[in-house]
Amino acid sequence: MSYLADVGALARKDLLLELRSRDTLPAMLLFVLSSFVVFHFVLPTGTDRLAAQGLLWVAIVFTALLGLARAFSAEREQSVLDGLVLATRDLSAIWFGKALSILAFLALAEVVALPVFGLFFGRVELRTVAAVALADLGIAAVGTLLAGMAAASRARELLLPLLFLPLVIPLVIGGVGATVADHPSSYLGLLALYDAVFGLVAWGSFAYVVAE
């Protein structure tokens, strides 16, 4: 129970920081809406509706990347991460709390973005929403760990997309498949499998990312 209390305290702190500085979520929202406008001009008239559905996933992945790049910026200033490492009993709680706050930002951005996408490019089906929800879990789990890695390196923001994109290709495949295929269930299954496998690996290995 006290583990969850730690996770709660850490996630609450991230939301508080965002509420105060308001720099991540508005940026993510603006980015995802701008990318929709770009998509309109990328897709020539008469292009299949499916093409736009695929591009939705490009928007989601890059919007998430935008949020993840800033995930540990507050900790890096003043090297707060050292303080958290000393204070937190189980270091995976730091990952858990951060992943929850990333998940919240991503979900909030999508609550706005998906209806707008529907408005611009045609109806968003329920299976797409389910796929986005499942993919968000995987993106938050893997992305938080990789953001922690990138924060420890000299290259930082430059490194994160390089680490992140090859790892989320299965999520993109699952997401696009669930959106456009005739039988989405196996693709939704793939997304759930990804969440389970990578969630566990990230949860188990985060302690090594922040401590020697």
Partner: peptide
């Protein structure tokens, strides 16, 4: 440490409250 290990965007009370909960 050399640095204070506190969040600049949080107040003193909020910073200590977070550490108090974790500890």
């Amino acid at each position: 440490a050399h640095e204070a290990l506190v969040y600049r965007e949080l107040t003193a009370l909020e910073n200590l409250d977070l550490y108090g909960r974790l500890y």
